[in-house]
Simulated scan of single mutants.
Amino acid sequence: MKNRFFLLLVFLLIALATTDLRAQNPIIRDVFTADPAPLVYRDTLFLYTSHDTASVQETNYKMPDWRIYSTTDMVHWKDYGTRLSPRLFAWATGDAYAAQCVYHKGKFYWFISTFHQKDDNSQGGAAIGVAVSDRPTGPFTDAIGKALITNEMTKDLPHAWDDIDPTVFVDDDQQVYLYWGNGSCRWVRLKDSMTALAGPITTFTPQNYIEGPWVYKRRKLYYLVYASAGTKPEMIEYCTAPSATGPWTYRGIIQQNVLNSFTTHPGIIDYKGQSYFFYHNGALPTGGSYRRSICVDDLRYNPDGTIQPIVQTTTGVAPIK
């Protein structure tokens, strides 16, 4: 009996050692996270997230803060916990909506969206702020002491929640661009300080655009990926362009509806020779549209640079060895 047990244990250990263990989707399973924003710094991939805390019965968002995770193998994730909240910003009130952290000239700038208090600078509505740190995990401080973008600065749409979901792109010449918007997409050049506008705000509306833009460059092609109204609920569609300012050519749907959530949100990054597509769904037990969870799957390109449709999996991506 002892010999049989020993042999069974040996076979089990061999099987575990030779199995190509993969992550599970969703990748974060102990709290509800959304709006993934990956950043590669040195040999580590950092993931900046929103945080859903609404109860199962609630029918609106409850998002008190932003969190950070990291990985070096795409399977095991280190949890740094809550690293930023709207309470850091004296001008802010309300929830912690989608945000993105970028590295530029020795510092980390976390562009966030929340709501603005009624004061001398704004009469309220969604706004974009900037936090800064010397390290990817903080501590972060308010980089400006006021909002970078307020509702009064964009007048093309009447609703108060249009200035959300910032994404920042640093081009090869180090020019920095900020993109954002719900209902229409806006972009503006930023000064090298990352804390001031360097020109006028331009508004445009990509086909089926709703919110959540993500901008990056691959080879000579610029990509604008966003949450869309291809069919309801949201899908992910994209455009490409020869420059960071367009003109943008519509390329189609790359991600179909996600499980158990009427929103989704893209985050795209290359890491250790592979391309990855981050998004959120409502797949965890008791999850849903206000209790979302982040997933990641492989991203693949065609020879002409167009993106192949995303295959949503429950097994996630293969580990980096």
Rank of each mutant, 00 (worst) to 15 (best):
F5Y: 14
V10R: 04
V10P: 08
F11T: 14
L13E: 02
I14H: 00
T19E: 13
A23S: 15
A23M: 10
N25S: 09
P36H: 10
P36T: 10
V40W: 06
T44Y: 12
L45A: 02
T49L: 15
S50M: 08
H51R: 06
H51G: 04
H51M: 01
T53L: 11
S55G: 14
V56W: 11
Q57T: 13
T59E: 10
N60A: 10
D65F: 04
R67H: 04
Y69A: 07
T71V: 06
D73G: 01
D73I: 06
D73E: 01
K78G: 02
Y80T: 04
R83C: 13
R83Y: 03
S85D: 03
L88M: 12
A92K: 15
C101H: 07
Y103W: 13
H104I: 07
Y109H: 12
Y109V: 02
Y109S: 04
S113D: 03
S113P: 07
F115H: 14
D120R: 13
G124E: 10
A126R: 11
A126K: 13
S133V: 11
T137K: 07
T137N: 12
P139L: 08
F140G: 08
F140P: 09
D142W: 05
G145D: 11
K146Y: 09
N151C: 04
M153E: 02
K155I: 15
K155R: 15
D156G: 01
D163G: 00
I164F: 07
D165K: 09
V168Q: 06
V168I: 10
V170N: 07
D171Q: 05
D171W: 00
D172N: 05
G181D: 06
G183I: 09
S184M: 14
W187A: 00
R189C: 03
L190G: 09
D192P: 10
D192K: 11
S193E: 12
A196R: 00
A196S: 07
G199A: 08
F204K: 14
Q207I: 02
Q207P: 00
I210T: 14
P213T: 06
V215Y: 01
V215Q: 03
Y216M: 10
K220G: 14
L221W: 00
Y223K: 03
Y226A: 11
A229F: 12
G230E: 02
T231R: 08
T231C: 05
P233H: 00
I236W: 00
C239E: 13
C239N: 14
T240M: 03
A244W: 02
A244V: 05
P247N: 12
T249W: 00
R251I: 02
I254R: 05
Q256D: 12
N257M: 01
N257Q: 07
N257R: 02
V258D: 02
F262R: 12
F262N: 10
F262Y: 13
T264I: 07
H265M: 09
G267K: 06
I269T: 11
G273Q: 03
Y276A: 01
Y276D: 06
N281T: 14
A283K: 10
L284G: 05
L284Y: 06
G287P: 10
G287V: 07
S289T: 15
S293F: 02
V296W: 05
D298M: 06
R300E: 14
R300I: 12
D304N: 06
G305C: 04
I310P: 01
T315N: 13
G316R: 09
V317I: 15
A318V: 11
P319C: 08
I320T: 10
K321R: 14
